[in-house]
Structures are given as structure tokens and as C-alpha cells.
Design a protein around this nucleic acid. Structure first.
Lengths: 167, 167
DNA sequence: GCACAGATTTTGAGCGCTCAAACATTTCGG
DNA sequence: CCGAAATGTTTGAGCGCTCAAAATCTGTGC
């Protein structure tokens, strides 16, 4: 059996608009941040996560979870941020296999310097184009989309996992 | 002068929802396509572009423009797709520095086989979560966002370009 | 014709991401 | 306690993307 459910015209247009618009937006923000702060958006988010945490420090696993990032990806990212002197690793006192990422003072300064420009980019390329209503719509749409995807973390292998709610 | 225009609460929430939801959606679709068809979404789009063109062929530059892709990226992509036997390059008859990418029969078969599952993913992860109204809103939002970004192709160097609308 | 600016495409280096595998440590069952 | 499973993190290979530079060809002015 093949797919009985193609996209109708409305959906086609919405999909292409999102695909292209979203990519253009993200590419632009990435370039701007790369140019102004020398780091990709992914790394910026790591620094933001640390800066919002008490002591500007967080367990690697926790940081990965918040950034919707794989442990491996975060480890590579922190390695790079450590080279740059913006983050350092410390041993976790309560669990010796754990590691804690700590935002350095320089990292905090870099983040502060980058933040204004980045926010300005988000505003000028996204929110300035949208009405107040559309901002609310954007939030609702992507909360509806993201929730189910973050609940079921995805098929690790070749397994279909239907959640039939009993009752 | 620092940024006078931070994000308010509504905007913060909308931004984070979009950032995370959008990433989750794209990651998921990419994984599914990679698992089912052995290629990333970017390559799938190249095949789609070719399949919709008369003769299933297109100039590299034209294909790059339609996919919102840099010439370099497309060249690398087509090189890979050529290895896989799904696309081949031909010389352009009217311009000897030009190249034409052609979708092979096998490439077309692979695309047909991948399409149903990919569309099903788009539907189940995106459109099934949205009302009819939200689909229209999604389109309007990203058309508003994408249009200005594709018009001005982005700062190639270190230049700030404000468009002050006269009048 | 010929040099030279412009257009089209490719190439190679560098980087971030993914995946699978390794490693280190904790937790649990007997 | 001891070995096995589970947890937290790192490592290395492979791939796709970006950027700058090269290679190839077109069109124009002289």
C-alpha cells in the first residue's frame, strides 16, 4: 500500500513557505552571529543555557537535555568552547563519571557582547515582520508540533512505537 | 549603544517554541528519510527539483536558485548523488561552461519510493497537529519572513544595509 | 584576434553534526 | 562483596555545509 494522503494545495504552499522561510531565517541568523561573535547559533545556546543556570554551571547531561542536543554533540561543542576559553569542564562532586560545564568570565563577556546583536537579528528578521497575533500563532503552532516530538524521543532502531492509550 | 529592543514574554516563548519545535521537526524528518531512503532532506529536494523539470534535467545554477542553495553546496550534493547513481551530469549545449544535472531512471525510482513515506512524515508530524486555520497562518507567517530575506541575499562582507523606506 | 571583466562550476580545507563504539563509574542482584 | 546492567561522557570516522580560491568559458572593447 502506498501513501493515501498527499498534501493538498494549501498544505503544499504552507510547507514550502515554512521550509524556505525557516531555512532563510536560520541561515541568516547563523551568519550574523558567526560574523559578529565568531560562533554558530548552537554554541550561543550552550552559553545561554549556562548563563541562566545558578553558578553559571550545569551537568553535561542536563545541558544536553535543555538544548535538545545529543550528549555527543554537546561534548564536541563544549570541547570547542573550551578551546576558545569560554567554557571549562570540572569534575562533578557527587558523581565521578559526571562532568560539569562552567561558563568562564570571558565566556560570559562574549555572550553579553553577542546577545544584543543576535536579539536584534531575531527581531528584525522575524518579529518585525509579524503582527502581534501572528506571534501568538507562531507559538501555538510550534508548541503543538514540538510537544509530541519531544515526548517520544524518536525511533532508535527499526521499531514502530504506537502509543495506544488504554482506557 | 546596546540593544534597546529585547524580546518580551510573548516573543520569548514564541521564539523558543519555534526554535525547538522547528528543530525537532526537521531532525525527525531528516532521520526518517535517512532511514527509509538513505539520503538527507537536502538531497531529496534536489531530486524533487529535477523530477519537476521538463526532461528531468536542469542547469546547475537554476537548480541551486530554486533550492535556496549555494552553487558550491549544490555541486557537492550532485557529486554525491552521482556516486549513488541517481543523477548524472551532462554538458550544456548552449553554454560550454555550464553543466546540466539529469535525474536518472534509478534516481526517479528512488524518489518515488521515498516520497510517500516522507510526505507521510510531514503530515503526521506537522499537519496532523494543526487546524486548517493554523496551516494558513503558518504559510502567511513564513511568507512574510522569507520574502525580505530572499530579496536581499544577505551581507557578503561587513556591511550594514538598512532599507529606510522613503515616503 | 586578444586581453579582460563577468559568469558558471568545481575544488579543498575546515568545522559541526551524527552514529556507533569505547570508556569510566554507579547501581543492583545474588 | 562481585559481576552484570545501567548511566554519563568521550572518542573517531564519515558526511554535508561554508568559505575562499581556482578552473573554465562567454562577451565586450579595442
Amino acid at each position: 500500500m502506498d501513501s493515501p494522503r498527499w498534501l493538498d494545495d494549501e498544505e503544499q504552499q504552507a510547507w514550502r513557505a515554512f521550509l524556505f522561510g525557516g531555512r532563510l531565517l536560520m541561515n541568516r541568523l547563523d551568519r550574523e552571529l558567526q560574523a559578529s561573535a565568531g560562533m554558530p547559533v548552537a554554541y550561543y545556546e550552550v552559553l545561554v543555557g549556562l548563563s541562566e543556570s545558578p553558578g553559571r554551571a550545569m551537568r553535561m547531561s542536563e545541558l544536553a537535555r535543555r538544548a535538545e542536543s545529543s550528549p555527543s554533540r554537546l561534548s564536541h561543542a563544549v570541547a570547542r568552547l573550551e578551546e576558545l576559553g569560554w567554557v571549562r569542564r570540572e569534575a562533578c562532586p557527587t558523581d565521578r563519571r559526571g562532568a560539569v560545564a562552567v561558563l568562564t568570565d570571558e565566556g560570559f563577556r562574549v555572550l553579553e557582547a553577542a546577545a544584543a546583536g543576535h536579539v536584534e537579528g531575531i527581531r528584525s528578521h522575524l518579529f518585525d515582520r509579524l503582527s502581534r497575533e501572528q506571534v501568538a500563532q507562531l507559538r501555538e503552532i510550534f508548541e503543538a508540533v514540538g510537544r509530541p516530538l519531544s515526548d517520544e524521543p524518536g525511533p532508535p532502531c527499526d521499531e514502530d512505537q504506537d502509543q495506544s492509550c488504554p482506557g
